[in-house]
């Protein structure tokens, strides 16, 4: 992925996988994130931990422009301030109660979260259309070996399986897993899309077999 010295962008999810009014778990090298979209459509990335009793905010719920923790309903704004503590309805929560937030950019159907403060915006995905995301139990090197191609500096790999060409945006996670966002050229039919979805499943089988063999053989 493109990196400058002050920070970099991680592709964490597809826009289509984060409808308005929902929250999902996501990961960057800076830790776990509660990635959420308010009812009005604005995306935010909050640290995935409520400071009250440590509950994961990705288990919470979105109402209006706030994200609430499932445990006690503490509500947070997109900038991380705690707006409301239901046990004390009359209380204005002090500023000290807040969650850390991260920069988010959304473009071309992909949501990027910053680690640190990148100088440049996320890479453009010229004319590509997002198809789906999936996780492979294989590292980037192994996926490259399985696909016979290398990823470029944005983490994008052009994979050709038989008749299908697809673009894989790779984001290596912990434990040697890789989050793979599958993108296709703009001009594609339903048949292409289904075929590509199956092709990436095949690639996953191949990459995971290869990874298992590599792990076994040291």
């Amino acid at each position: 992925m493109s990196a400058d010295t002050t920070g970099f962008w991680t592709p964490v999810a597809l826009s289509a996988d984060l409808p308005s009014g929902t929250v999902i778990p996501a990961h960057t090298r800076a830790g776990s994130i509660a990635l959420w979209r308010s009812d009005s459509g604005r995306v935010a990335a909050s640290a995935d931990r409520c400071p009250h009793r440590g509950m994961r905010l990705s288990y919470g719920f979105v109402r209006g422009e706030t994200l609430s923790c499932i445990y006690h309903g503490w509500s947070y704004t997109q900038t991380g301030n705690c707006l409301r503590i239901p046990a004390h309805p009359g209380l204005t929560p002090p500023d000290t109660i807040r969650v850390a937030t991260h920069l988010v950019e959304e473009a071309d159907g992909v949501i990027w979260v910053a680690v640190g403060e990148p100088v440049h915006p996320p890479p453009k995905l010229e004319g590509l259309v997002a198809l789906r995301s999936l996780t492979m139990h294989a590292d980037v090197t192994t996926i490259e070996a399985a696909s016979g191609a290398k990823s470029d500096e944005t983490g994008l790999l052009k994979a050709t399986q038989q008749y299908d060409t697809m673009w894989l945006l790779l984001s290596e996670q912990e434990q040697g897993h890789t989050l793979v966002h599958v993108l296709l050229d703009g001009d594609n039919t339903l048949g292409h899309r289904i075929s590509a979805s199956r092709a990436v499943e095949s690639l996953r089988r191949c990459a995971e077999d290869l990874q298992a063999r590599r792990s076994r053989d040291g």
């Binding site: 009014g21 929902t22 719920f61 979105v62 109402r63 209006g64 609430s68 499932i70 309903g73 309805p89």
Partner: peptide, 13 residues
């Protein structure tokens, strides 16, 4: 499997 609280707006007393 808990209730999806977001399906109802925040009720007021």
């Amino acid at each position: 499997i808990h209730r999806l609280h977001e399906l109802k707006p925040e009720p007021q007393i």
